[in-house]
Design a binder for these strands. Structure first.
Lengths: 196, 196
DNA sequence: TATTGACTACCTAATGGTAGGTAGCTTACT
DNA sequence: AGTAAGCTACCTACCATTAGGTAGTCAATA
């Protein structure tokens, strides 16, 4: 019996690719580098994926799906308060920030947007849209249940919160201050308690 | 007499380099591309700058100086209210957003931070720090003069505002919605009017 | 024995950068 | 004033390296 969880080469490639893009961007991600980190030779990468772009597409799709699934679960759980759901939403941002040198994948891709292949652009676009809408939905939910209280439009707030998280990760890394994302999270939470 | 404002080749190189980085990132900026856009050949670029990295350094320095000077002027002008100074601060963000395909130079560089030469990292770091501090100073100033009113700590707010602007530019470009930065600006302004 | 997953060897294009040369303008000296 | 030296701003030609990607091979496995 093999107790180890076998991670397929394909998954390993995606893991390494994700990390590389989060650290240095898509255009700095090279097949050679991935190969070395995975422990195989460059052409073997192209056995698992037809091209570099295809790796990019797979990474972003998987990333996006992760968020969607995690939040779908959180929303489905009726025992969770909006505050708890919100906190769960912060989790990956907190995690990446803690690693200090990683930021949101789609934040990076948004930075090099104009040079991305069309297919990746589209997923990044969907990612941004989905997050805006999801936050808006959560705000609405929390407002109805009278746990969130805020003054501005849900749309403006959702835009600001998501943008602040994206920018916050960048700022935390540049300043080498992983705790900075907590400042952002504090500010977001306080904005939703503006009934004093 | 020559009425035309002569832009030196050196300045032209920096202009093109700035635009390219804002659109596609530092690692996508190539000497070949710059040369074509400036209208000279690749090796001539290296007559004006010793290396690609040196171009990067010069671009970021100039960019940072621009902000510092503009805000120094605005602060020195005593006829300007904090609201007006804040609005002036938003100007470049509005401008880049309007062009739809450009975002903040240092936002992009923050995205590819881990692959940047040390010298550029340092300036980007300074840039972020300067903006955080500058916003904090403005908030303090506006609070003292009782034109801004807000609930959270100045530090948290400054972090959130700056990060939101950075992220907002990314979001606006990805969503192809230049107006999105206005949502962010609205949310920021409203947060400073929380006395109702 | 057919398939899977890796390999070696190689290709073309593009990258940052170098070497060496040249037309045209300034400056300095006789 | 004429000319020689030197500088400026560009050029062509080239180099080593690396990029993504291809062709063909080989060994283990099911």
């Amino acid at each position: 019996m093999n107790n180890k969880i076998e991670i397929s080469t394909k998954e390993k490639i995606l893991d390494v690719a994700l990390e590389t893009i989060q650290k240095c961007g898509f255009s700095e991600m090279t097949l050679q580098n991935i190969a070395e980190q995975v422990g195989i030779k460059k052409p073997s990468i192209l056995y698992h994926f037809p091209s570099k772009n295809a790796i990019g597409v797979a990474v972003v799709k998987r990333y996006h799906e992760y968020f969607k699934n995690a939040m779908k679960q959180a929303m489905a759980d009726n025992t969770k308060t909006p505050w708890e759901v919100l906190d769960l939403y912060f989790t990956p941002f907190r995690q990446y920030s803690k690693q200090a040198d990683r930021v949101c994948l789609c934040g990076v891709l948004a930075s090099e947007y104009e040079s991305l292949p069309e297919e990746i652009k589209n997923i990044v676009n969907e990612f941004f849209q989905w997050h805006h809408e999801w936050i808006e939905t959560l705000l609405e939910h929390g407002q109805k249940e009278k746990v969130f209280s805020f003054l501005h439009s849900k749309k403006d707030l959702a835009a600001m919160f998501f943008s602040a998280l994206q920018g916050g990760l960048l700022s935390a890394r540049v300043s080498n201050n992983p705790g900075e994302i907590e400042n952002i999270i504090n500010a977001i939470q306080n904005t939703l308690k503006s009934d004093h």
